[in-house]
C-alpha cells in the first residue's frame, strides 16, 4: 500500500491540521509516513503545500516526484491547479470551490472554473458552507478531509479516532462538530463516486 498526497492552500488556512489527522491515522495502522511542511516566509499569505507520503514500505524522498501523487487535496481552487502536474494517471483532485483572493491578479472565476472542469477525476465542494451546516465554519478542514477519505486507503474509523484524539482536549462538542463535518464531506465524495 502506498499513497502520496499533496496538500495545498494559502498560508494561514490550516492545511497542516488535515495532515495531522491523516498522519496519526496512518501511524496507528502501523504504516510508514513522511510529511514535509512549509515554515517561514511563505506562511505570510503565500502559497503553501505539504507533501504527505504513506506506505507499508520504508519511504525515501520527503518530496513526491512529478506525476506520482495519488491525490491533490486543496483548500483553495487556484492552489489545487498549481499542483496538477504532480498528479498520476489515476490521481484525484479534491478541492474547496471558494477562491481566496489576496492578490490583485487573481484569475476571473469563469476562467478558473473552465480550467477545473477540464479535469475529470475530481470532487469540488464548498467546504465553508458545509462546515457552517455542520455547526461551525471552523470545521471546514475536516469537511475537505472527509471528501478525501474514500481515496486515502485508510480505515474511516481510524480517521474518526484521530479526530477524537486531536480535538479531544477542546471538549466533546468540538469533537462531535468535527466528526459531523468529516462525515458530511465523505457523503459528498461518495455521491460523486456513485456509478
Amino acid at each position: 500500500m502506498k499513497i502520496d498526497i499533496i496538500l495545498a492552500g494559502v498560508g494561514g488556512q490550516g492545511i497542516l491540521s488535515i495532515a495531522a489527522v491523516i498522519g496519526e491515522a496512518a501511524l496507528n495502522q502501523g504504516l510508514f509516513m513522511k510529511q514535509s511542511e512549509v515554515h517561514g516566509m511563505s506562511q505570510r499569505g503565500g502559497d503553501v503545500q505539504s507533501n504527505l507520503r504513506i506506505s507499508d514500505q520504508a519511504i525515501y524522498s520527503d518530496l513526491i516526484p512529478t506525476g506520482k501523487a495519488d491525490l491533490v487535496l486543496a483548500l483553495e481552487p487556484m492552489e489545487a491547479l498549481r499542483y496538477l502536474s504532480f498528479l498520476s494517471v489515476d490521481g484525484w483532485l479534491v478541492s474547496n470551490s471558494v477562491p481566496y483572493v489576496n492578490i490583485p491578479n487573481y484569475p476571473e472565476e469563469e476562467k478558473l472554473q473552465e480550467s477545473i472542469s477540464g479535469f475529470q477525476r475530481k470532487v469540488i465542494l464548498d467546504v465553508d458552507s458545509i462546515a457552517r451546516e455542520a455547526g461551525s465554519v471552523r470545521a471546514a478542514n475536516m469537511v475537505l478531509l472527509g471528501a478525501a477519505s474514500p481515496f486515502l486507503q485508510l480505515d474511516y474509523s481510524g480517521l474518526e479516532q484521530a479526530v477524537r484524539h486531536i480535538f479531544g482536549r477542546k471538549g466533546e462538542t468540538v469533537v462531535e462538530l468535527n466528526l459531523k463535518a468529516l462525515s458530511m464531506g465523505k457523503a459528498i465524495a461518495e455521491q460523486v463516486l456513485k456509478p
Binding site: 499569505g45 503565500g46 487556484m78 499542483y83 498528479l87 489576496n102 492578490i103 484569475p107 476562467k111
Partner: peptide
C-alpha cells in the same frame, strides 16, 4: 524519464507572501 501528464494551467498566478 518522469511522467508529467498535466501542465500547470495558465490561469494559476504566483501568490507571493505579504504583510498580514
Amino acid at each position: 524519464k518522469t511522467t508529467k501528464l498535466y501542465e500547470k494551467p495558465e490561469v494559476v498566478m504566483p501568490r507571493p507572501p505579504a504583510l498580514c
